[in-house]
Design a protein around this nucleic acid. Sequence first.
DNA 1: GGTAATATCAGCGAAAGCACTGATGGAGAA
DNA 2: TTCTCCATCAGTGCTTTCGCTGATATTACC
Lengths: 217, 217
Amino acid sequence: MTINDNKIRLIVADDHTLVRQGIVQMLRQHDEFDVICECEDGVALVQAVVKHNPDVILMDISMPKMNGLVAIDRVIQQRSDAKVLVLTMHDEIEYMVALHRAGARGYLLKESSTDQLATAIRALHRGRTFFPDVLEKSLESTANGRGKPVSLLGGLTRREREVFFLVVAGHTTKDIAGLLDMSHKTAENHRGRVLAKMEVANTAELIRLAAREGLLE
Amino acid sequence: MTINDNKIRLIVADDHTLVRQGIVQMLRQHDEFDVICECEDGVALVQAVVKHNPDVILMDISMPKMNGLVAIDRVIQQRSDAKVLVLTMHDEIEYMVALHRAGARGYLLKESSTDQLATAIRALHRGRTFFPDVLEKSLESTANGRGKPVSLLGGLTRREREVFFLVVAGHTTKDIAGLLDMSHKTAENHRGRVLAKMEVANTAELIRLAAREGLLE
DNA sequence: GGTAATATCAGCGAAAGCACTGATGGAGAA
DNA sequence: TTCTCCATCAGTGCTTTCGCTGATATTACC
């Protein structure tokens, strides 16, 4: 037995102890995996990556002390070949794209099965990526079409952004028309395009999205 | 009356398979617990409770198909003595108060340790409750310092609270009527009363308010 | 000069939201 | 037993949202 008996060496980072320990417990059922370290926040993760140089890193994106995106950035800075598999509850495409750009190599919803988790880990270990189909499509379309939008507000035009902020501030289209000195039909049209670009069905969802992105207040 | 030794019989409900299975895996390490059923949503949970009559119910509050608060309500309807332990990531007091009123007997953050989880389960099984200290204080203050609303949700009736959560989740009144099995007019009425009590003009403002209060998942 | 993106306006129709009012039955308290 | 709160359903009427289509003017880029 060598110390390196080709197990896949993992670091698991998640601030929710119950969740993290649960996942670790589960991974320990598989012989092929070796959880060498657990982290509660991004800072600890970056240090652990430097110290242990794991094969694959499993991490939640919403962690205290250091935002997940920033954490990925730091990790990649330390080890440009780091294989980061993000575990998350959000299936918003915006999230996926952002993570992909940040350098994550895989993205897995917490709704996923344990089999999928194992598959994803193996994929990353072999140098592959693991993203849901939706993202693949989106990345293609951004590659084909001009490589623009991505950021939540980036895809909006100037006027649409103005309308967006007034909508999430709770104004009706008529209000907005008055405030921006335009026809209420124009305001409606802008509003409609915002909803379409943001891929939400109604104002309620739009505001939820804005809240998630920290765009309220 | 205990046919199968005196293990504490548990149902675990969480829509995130990874999280759920992790927790289950962890509970199986303890001899004193017996996980008799896992559920992915509120609907399944209610059915499972009726069927298995567990000692303690572990549940996430943010689940698809049926909002957690609604689910608790239904569970309590079926078994008024059901011991519901809520697992969540949110430590907002509003949530705790609402859950307490809904009939949950315990509240545990996912940041908690496994020991705390075991302690909480045992507490509920013995007929005690398990809430963070902050809540105890808050509940006292509502009892003593009379009158004061304290909670945003405090002024709402049980049904109004259910509707509230579904509204801020982005559902239309028709959706809500379906989910709560009521006429769409009734749902509209509840919604209207929620808007009035919260002193906001429309859904947009309501969601902003909810976001400010940390009531969005 | 052609092309593309943007900002503007408008109409239509379906759906949803919102403000009223009124009515019934049940549960619990005074 | 009254009385109040709650949950339920319903109707009317108006406003707002939302999806779709189509049109024009300006700007800017190649």
